[in-house]
Amino acid sequence: MNFYTVLEYIGMFLVFVGALFLFLGALGIFRLPDVYNRLQAGTKATTLGAFGAIIGIGLMRPEWLPKAILIAVFILMTNPISSHALARASYRRGIKLWDRSVVDRYGPYLREKEEKEGKR
């Protein structure tokens, strides 16, 4: 059992974990009640899943590792930004929270800001 075989097994394990998280993300999109919860499932779980899959494939083929790390860093930067923009746009569009939601911090801030701008 040499070094590359060990790397390959680690890569397989990472790909498996990534696929598991991707599946959980897809399940969350079906099961969760409103847009914001679904975004949570569709972004957090999917980021980790894609990250695991890409790094795992990079470990299975060590000559692709630099490119895989670059792609993973890119995904790590773009995915949260896009989910943030989606959540903000859907809140400003007036999509309601789930009726059993506990806390809403953005609404009071937005109303305060609008009042301040309205006074001016």
Partner: peptide, 18 residues
Amino acid sequence: KTEASLIVRTGSRILFPM
């Protein structure tokens, strides 16, 4: 009318050259 948030603006500044 509405401007993009700070996160999107900063992200665009980093990601645009990439």
